[in-house]
Design a protein around this nucleic acid. Structure first.
Lengths: 136, 136
DNA sequence: ATAATTCCCAGTGATTCCGTAGAAAATCAA
DNA sequence: TTGATTTTCTACGGAATCACTGGGAATTAT
């Protein structure tokens, strides 16, 4: 029940980018060096964040990445959902879920729904900006 | 980031026991039949719950299990912690944790701590009794 | 052209999940 | 006492996921 390194790294990557983004795009190597994360592994995570629309890439030499939005417009929820998927404690709380056969009789669903919304409340309520060291 | 079947089954097992516990202990087979869970797998889960002090066992023929406490004294948190371990989103929020090297500089810890306490707030606030169909 | 960089995809060792299987130990019923 | 029932313990196995590593194609600045 832990958030995997994918999600945790993603958070660090985004904070790093928020701090160092400017005119010039920031390369994977630059982030990897600062954050001490395997560059090759980071590539994949950044790819996910990019496809999720959280980053804009600039290809070719001197290329790299920009944040696609301002730090105060990006929530922790967006980042974690992109990399980890929905932070649901059980399938039955998901929207599209085919309701489990014991629906109605299932006593656990209500607790799971509460956990789910408690988690979402937290991660959707914190923005990237609030994670930046200055801001604290 | 899902609660595994171990924890979900454990919840169903405990509710089933709360409903059917009485003079006679309830056997694994009886619960497995009602809950449609592999008896052999359930054995292991029940073993964990038993060693955690949530169940009392009666060995031998006509044996089985009793709840070790009244349903209103057992929280969902106790059950999930016994079977799933602590529901922490990251190591750094745990008590005994050797603080990650970027402690202080780690921007994520605060969010994780909030998620952790939100989860605990929910699961420690709901008792087995409240999961029983009657009670709802 | 060359070097730097993103992009894409495949493979790998370790670990965890979700069970199965088998046998030992305890206890009750006959 | 014998046999059936039940808990208890341990080990095994296939599938999936995690955390990477590696190779190479495509794109672009210099």
């Amino acid at each position: 029940m832990m958030i995997s390194t994918r999600g945790r790294y993603a958070l660090r990557i985004m904070v790093d980018l928020a701090l160092h983004d400017g005119e010039e795009p920031v390369s994977v190597r630059a982030i990897a060096g600062r954050q001490d994360i395997s560059g090759k592994y980071m590539e994949q995570i950044i790819g996910v964040l990019s496809r999720a629309g959280l980053l804009r890439s600039v290809r070719g030499a001197q290329g790299g990445y920009h944040l696609a939005h301002r730090p105060e417009e990006i929530t922790v929820g967006m980042i974690l959902r992109a990399t980890e998927g929905d932070l649901a404690p059980a399938e039955c709380v998901l929207d599209g879920a085919q309701h489990c056969d014991r629906r109605g009789a299932c006593p656990s669903q209500k607790v799971f729904a509460k956990v789910y919304s408690a988690i979402n409340g937290v991660i959707d309520g914190v923005t990237l900006k609030e994670l930046m060291p200055d801001d604290a």
